[in-house]
Structures are given as C-alpha cells and as structure tokens.
Design a protein around this nucleic acid. Structure first.
Length: 310
DNA sequence: AAGACGAAAGTGGTTGA
DNA sequence: TCAACAACTTTCGTCTT
C-alpha cells in the first residue's frame, strides 16, 4: 500500500490554472479522480492528492454549483419495465397457427424475442453500470472492470431470475473494493434503484458463484475520500492513516468495522490538527453512527495514548 | 442550545452444533 | 436449521461547553 504524500514539485507560486495529468505520479495508475466539489484531483489507488485548488471558485460559483449538484444527484427518470416489447409482439398475434409458414414465423419470433430481450437487458445493465459509476465519479478502468465482471456473470448464467439492478450494484461494490477504493454499501445504495438488502444479497451470491475472494477493506482505503468530503487536507489525512497503522499493529482493528475505524481516526486527527469536526459531521459523511465513532475513538485514544482535548 | 456521553434495547449477519 | 454471538444502530436521558 503506497503511502500518500505530497507531490514533489509543488511550488507555492506555481500557477495551476489548467491541469492535465494522465497518470498518478506515485503509482502510475490511471485511477485519477477529479473531484470538482473539493477542486482537487486525487489518485484512487494510492490516495495521493495530485493537485488541489484546480479552479479558484468564487462565492457565486457555489450557488451555481449546488444547483448543478442537485441536478447531478438526481439519478434520472424511473424506468418503465412494462412496455419494452408491447408494440412488436402483438403485431403478429395469430396465435392459433399450428404448422406451416405461420408456425415457423411464430417460432422465429419467439427466438428473436428472447435474443432481443437478453440483448436489451445486457445493454440496460451496461448503461446502469455507467450511470451509477458516473454518479460515484469512478475512474474508467473501474467501469471497464465492472462491465467485464458483468459479462462473466452472464456467461455463467447467473443473471437469470435476478434483478439487474441488484447485480449491477453489487458488481460495482465488488469492483471498487478490488481496486482499493471501496465504497460503502450506503453510497452504492444512494445511486442504485434497489435497497441495501438486495444489493448485499446479490453481493454474497456473486462472491460465492464466481468464487471471488475479496480481502476485507482496510480502513485506510476510506480515508482520502472521507477527508475530502469533510474538507480536510493532506496533513490530517496522513495523521489519520498513521493512527490507523498504529492501531492495526496493536490489533485494535480486529473484528471492527473498517469504516468505523476510519471515521474515528479522522475524527481524532482533525482535532489534533485544530480542525475540529463534530461527531455528527463525521457520522453524516461516513455513514456510521456517532455512537460507533465514540466507541472507536475512545478505544483508539486510550490504547494509543493519544490525548484528545475538545 | 449544541455537542458529547453512555446505557439499554433492537437489528442483521456470522458461526458452530 | 437454529440458537448464540459480536458489531453496530437506535433511542434517549444526562452532562459539558
């Protein structure tokens, strides 16, 4: 796991109006994520913040931006599942034909109907992956990996009888994890059209059927994104990661949820660096409750001898 | 008034007989 | 298959700033 650090030649007076960066200077991956809200580019693989303050947005920008945000937050009109083949299949409904040309035609229609619908659902699945990945701001290589995983699941006939929404959501969840930039189940659910229960059902199903092995997510993997969402800079991110590493050495993270650990470490790191965030703020971003943040941060500060003064 | 605290009961997933 | 179990959530009253 690469340790996040500042980019080398980051001069103070270096004007960074337009930044065009193809790959991460740290790990060389093409996993750069451009976060317009926080105006920074960071690497999805190693968490390195490649560039900050890309655009200097004035206050007026904010208003425009929030409008754009709410538009982006809407995931699109609800789909109509029922009318997808209504017109065509009723065209030649002379259903009493038993043999001859009409029978052959009907058979042919049934076959192409099946081919059309599986193709349709496949196209729909890919567009769903694209839509959700876009809402989650995932880099292209993760989208491609997700599409490939869907093809694989299709080849093994794992799709039939299951909702495309559940499968595609679970596939994104899996792929993000595999690429070291895990999303929480809740984040996936927010851009999905189905509930958490169905997503995790599909998730476990896919892991079993494709026998994919996913190592449990490390709390560190969540830190860059959560920090970014809280408006916390690189120093705090580094501090939080250091806390997690020390906790991990003392085996304080065993059996604990990685998100809770990450949330607590960030909470502590922010206070230590004089940029206090309330437990509620951290809770809203991470999706774990304030109670869990409290419990984890009590454990961590106690066991690691960190003085946390509010 | 808001944030932090912690007890107690409830939930959903994992494990082991 | 079922019950025990651990982690986490929900809820809520209390203390602190």
């Amino acid at each position: 796991m690469a340790t996040p650090k500042r980019e080398k030649g980051e001069g103070k007076d270096e004007k960074q109006d337009k930044v065009e960066i193809k790959e991460c200077p740290e790990c060389g991956s093409k996993c750069l994520i451009r976060d317009y809200d926080k105006a920074e580019i960071f690497c999805a693989d190693c968490g390195l913040v490649v560039a900050e303050n890309i655009v200097d947005m004035g206050p007026e920008w904010r208003a425009f931006d929030s409008e754009q945000m709410s538009r982006r937050a809407r995931v699109g009109a609800p789909l109509t599942y029922r009318i997808h083949d209504k017109g065509l299949s009723t065209l030649t409904n002379w259903g009493t034909a038993q043999g001859g040309e009409q029978y052959k035609l009907k058979k042919w229609q049934q076959r192409t109907h099946i081919a059309n619908t599986t193709e349709r659902s496949f196209i729909f699945a890919l567009s769903e992956i694209e839509r959700m990945a876009s809402a989650l701001k995932l880099p292209v290589n993760i989208r491609e990996a997700a599409s490939m995983l869907y093809r694989k699941a299709m080849r093994k006939h794992l799709i039939r009888g299951r909702s495309i929404e559940g499968i595609t959501s679970a596939i994104l969840y899996i792929t993000c994890r595999q690429y070291g930039v895990p999303r929480t189940l809740e984040e996936i659910r927010e851009v999905s059209r189905v509930g958490q229960k169905e997503i995790s059902r599909a998730y476990r199903f896919l892991l079993r059927e494709l026998d994919i092995k996913v190592s449990p997510a490390s709390p560190i993997d969540f830190v860059p994104r959560f920090c970014s969402m809280l408006g916390l800079g690189g120093d705090i991110r580094a501090k939080a990661i250091e806390i997690i590493k020390r906790a991990s050495e003392k085996e304080l993270t065993n059996g604990r949820g990685p998100i809770g650990i990450a949330a607590a470490a960030i909470y502590i790191a922010a206070i230590l660096n004089g940029e206090h965030r309330t437990q509620k703020e951290v809770s809203d971003v991470t999706g774990v409750t304030e109670v869990t943040i409290r419990n984890r941060y009590k454990e961590l500060s106690e066991q690691l001898d960190i003085e946390v003064l509010l």
